[in-house]
Write a protein that binds this DNA or RNA. Structure first.
Lengths: 155, 155
DNA sequence: GAGTTTTGCATGCACATGCATCTAATGTCT
DNA sequence: AGACATTAGATGCATGTGCATGCAAAACTC
């Protein structure tokens, strides 16, 4: 994804004109504030994570996410449909992420013998190694920025 | 208000304040939980907002965001560089969003006479009208899903 | 004032993503 | 068994995004 890095802000919330409405106005503006905070935090962290993972381990965020999910499992493998449930990607996007990981030799696609439509994604040695190497990078970025003050979206 | 205060029945992610340790396993796994929570909430809301804004008002999330920022300003116009600071888009992406809004007749690009490099984006009548119509949709989606338990059903 | 650097925005390009669709395998119904 | 429906995953296509770059205008240096 790799978003830009920006600073400063121009927030100038006026919004409500204050007629005889119920309390919904105040509540929804609180919602908006919260939503903007999620947006800002997500943008900041996605950008930072993607940049550091790319620079340090040639991994995108989606790729790392899939590797991490596989590494967390005792058998270090899962059906595509199972991975899809724990990652926020469409089925097609996930299929291509797995394709990239396979090309890079980090996972292998194995036909499932019980259900021959399904594909089991198996973490390889180098895939596990790379995830193990990349994990501290991810943890460090999270520790650095997850609770850091946001420079945007706060007037 | 901190964003994770109200996040449904999820794990409580309080960071210990006592020790000066950084990057310990316990803390980083708490970070991971919080990060995944942000990812899930962001995915759910982005998808829902985009779908409803698209269906109801033919607006994408980025387009709505820009309209909203402009509508919040007393003069309902701003330089591109100013908008860029309050929206989580790269400068190039923002330029194209503004292009789409202009094509749709929702904003106009006006040359800035003080700085002839700059472009002032001015909300039009129909732009303001559309934003006014779309705002309740956004507020409703936020109210419905911002604090709802995460179901990961985004399609 | 001429030359250089920086700033503001647009654009070519590469690429990741979602949607619709396709193929194959499985499940279901009669 | 045969016919239809459903599910798992891959792929063509359109689109939105970021990066690198281009261009013009302002700012800076001498």
């Amino acid at each position: 994804m790799r978003m830009h890095d920006n600073v400063a802000s121009m927030t100038e919330t006026k919004v409500s004109a204050g007629s005889g409405e119920t309390g919904t106005d105040r509540e929804s503006t609180a919602d908006v504030r919260e939503w903007r905070e999620i947006l800002a935090r997500h943008a900041d962290l996605s950008c930072a994570l993607d940049r550091e993972l790319q620079a340090g381990h040639a991994l995108g965020m989606s790729e790392y996410e899939v590797l991490e999910r596989l590494a967390e499992l005792p058998e270090q493998s899962a059906k595509v449909s199972a991975i899809a449930k724990s990652v926020h990607l469409s089925q097609s996007a996930l299929s291509r992420v797995i394709g990239r990981l396979e090309t890079a030799g980090l996972v292998e696609r194995v036909m499932c013998t019980q259900d021959r439509r399904a594909v089991i994604v198996q973490l390889t040695e180098s895939g596990l190694l790379l995830q193990t190497e990349a994990q501290p990078t991810q943890r460090r970025v999270l520790a650095e920025r997850l609770h850091a003050p946001l420079l945007k979206s706060c007037e």
